[in-house]
């Protein structure tokens, strides 16, 4: 049995839009073990992104607890949360969110520079990571010179830069063709096998779901663990 790395307990997130209150999350119990690839599916507006944001320490819950890698995130202040995201979490977005002014290598260096890794080591590590995702020939290309699949690989390399224990991906294949999506998932499986990292993927994509060790479904802020098929 692997250890629990992410656990939420009766997690509630309430948004207020004018006079209307929206429960984006309404009592969510979620668990991920180290080394798992967890899928989160559900209709649009059901609260998937909100759940990822809570686990990643990007936002604070209205109620309940989030414990990640032994830390209760509700007890951390903004600075500590930033540090937590830097060291423990890697984010992957649907539209890659690379910095357009930087080359692939520099994009991977950004989180390393926030972590104050010295320049030479930074470059070395960024290059290693790009090799890991199969982009060693593309290090000097800017995002607009890369295909969607390549950009997402750069984003993965960036997410891995500070050796996080958890990678949170919001629709990682949402903007990719199926071929790129398949090779991306292969990459994720390889990383998981090599480094025992935990992936939590929000997705609509059956290709992604297929690779997951377990899958949650969210509907109207409530979560349910799918029966193994």
């Amino acid at each position: 049995m692997s250890e629990t790395i992410v656990q939420t307990n009766k997690l509630v997130k309430k948004y207020r839009r004018g006079k209307i209150e929206i429960y984006a999350l309404n009592g969510v119990d979620f668990e991920a073990l180290r080394g798992e690839i967890v899928g989160v599916v559900g209709p649009s507006g059901s609260g998937k992104t909100t759940l990822l944001n809570m686990i990643g320490g990007l936002d604070k819950p209205t109620g309940g607890t989030v414990v990640v890698d032994g830390r209760d995130l509700t007890k951390l202040d903004a600075g500590e949360l930033a540090d937590f995201r830097l060291k423990k979490i890697g984010f992957i977005f649907q539209f890659y969110n690379l910095l357009p002014i930087y080359t692939a290598l520099e994009n991977v260096e950004v989180p390393l520079s926030f972590a104050k890794v010295p320049k030479e080591e930074r470059e070395e590590r960024a290059f290693e990571l790009l090799r890991l995702v199969g982009l060693e020939t593309r290090v000097d290309h800017k995002p607009d010179e890369l295909s969607g699949g390549e950009q997402q690989r750069v984003a993965i390399a960036r997410a891995l830069a500070n050796r996080p224990s958890i990678i949170l991906a919001d629709e990682p294949t949402g903007d990719l063709d199926s071929e790129s999506a398949i090779s991306l998932m292969k990459l994720i499986r390889k990383l998981k096998e090599q480094h025992n990292q935990t992936f939590i993927n929000v997705t609509h994509d059956p290709l992604v779901v297929q690779e997951c060790t377990k899958v949650y479904t969210i509907r109207d802020g409530r979560i349910q663990l799918n029966e193994k098929t």
Partner: peptide, 12 residues
């Protein structure tokens, strides 16, 4: 971009 930098771990 700013949101991304913060998600990556940039402090205010």
């Amino acid at each position: 971009e700013i949101g991304t930098l913060k998600a990556i771990g940039a402090k205010d």
